[in-house]
């Protein structure tokens, strides 16, 4: 047996067995599986982006590089065809206005329910989480009915979509702020009060700066969620004019129809979200510079809401 264990006389079979017995061996199979998963999840998207630069009309056979689906033709280019342009503008309009409103309401709500300890705050904390978990279809239907039957002064279209998006997203900042407040604890505010700060002063000069990373991370998240939102925008759109990019892509692909101009539109959506993510990542790292535990992975996790 001792001879077998000697590495010089090892047969391939015993080598394999001893490799399997080694408790600290590298998890090769697991790593290969993970790579396979990553390739499967990312490569189709890369292919779709590449085809938005196809010179031909096909989105499945490559005919050379061109930017004709972005610029150059008033019928086929997404930046020049008025219908495509209107979808791009609608997406940005909805995302920007909804993000601003959501953040104002959500941050105040998060701080309020964390500090105001009462039955009402507990109840509405529950309502807020509930509104987040129900399927978006049911949520969208509730909004569709309320604007067509009760609040009929709000027309379906941009304003209805914004009200829907704000409600749907309010829980992002609220939950993230709530968590951050719980981890900060009362000590800093007490110190500020001991040093003579009033409540409002300590809120403005101590609490808000400490909440900045959380506020920033949730702004980025809410913006990206609004850009990508489909169900609410679809159920609450009134006509083709109020269809954002996501709804436009959906209604054009019914039954599997597509073309490079849709890929170009989707690539733009991807760009908006990825720019938001990049801004979020870099901004988050800048805000938290010098903080303990602030690393690249931590910044990535924060802007994703983990």
């Amino acid at each position: 047996m001792t001879a077998v264990l000697d590495s010089e006389v090892m047969t391939p079979a015993t080598k394999r067995r001893s490799w399997r017995k080694n408790p600290w061996r590298k998890p090769v199979v697991l790593e290969a599986f993970t790579w396979a998963y990553l390739v499967w999840s990312i490569v189709p998207i890369v292919i779709a982006v590449i085809f938005s630069f196809n010179n031909g009309k096909s989105d499945s056979s490559w005919e050379g590089f061109s930017t004709r689906w972005y610029w150059g033709s008033t019928t086929n280019s997404v930046f020049e065809n008025p219908v495509f342009r209107s979808a791009i503008e609608q997406t940005l309009r909805l995302a920007i206005i909804s993000t601003i409103l959501t953040m104002i309401l959500g941050v105040a709500f998060g701080i309020g329910i964390h500090r105001w300890r009462s039955k009402t705050s507990v109840t509405f904390n529950f309502v807020m989480v509930f509104s987040y978990v129900i399927p978006e279809l049911i949520f969208g239907i509730a909004f569709f009915f309320v604007f067509t039957q009760l609040f009929t002064f709000v027309d379906l279209g941009t304003s209805a979509q914004i009200l829907g998006l704000v409600t749907w997203n309010i829980s992002w900042p609220a939950i993230i702020i709530f968590a951050r407040l719980s981890s900060i604890g009362p000590a800093y505010e007490e110190a500020a009060a001991d040093l003579g700060c009033s409540r409002l002063q300590s809120l403005r000069r101590v609490l808000l700066p400490m909440l900045m990373p959380a506020i920033f991370a949730s702004t980025v998240l809410v913006f990206a969620t609004c850009v990508d939102d489909f169900v609410i925008c679809n159920l609450l759109s009134s006509s083709a004019n109020t269809e954002p990019m996501s709804v436009f892509i959906y209604s054009s692909t019914h039954g599997g129809q597509s073309g490079p101009q849709l890929n170009a539109l989707a690539t733009l959506m991807l760009l908006f979200s990825l720019v938001a993510a990049a801004v979020g990542f870099l901004g988050y790292r800048w805000i938290t510079r010098g903080e303990r535990g602030a690393g690249r992975s931590q910044a990535l996790e924060s802007i994703t809401g983990l």
Binding site: P44, I45, I47, A48, F51, D59, S60, A224, V227, D228, F230, M245, S246, I249, Y250, T253, G256, S258, L262, N263, A266, T267, M269, L270, S273, L274, A276, A277, T304
Partner: peptide
């Protein structure tokens, strides 16, 4: 971070 519609479109192409 990638739009759901983009991810579906990618599979429609493939």
């Amino acid at each position: 971070w990638i739009s759901y519609m983009m991810r579906m479109l990618a599979w429609i192409d493939l």
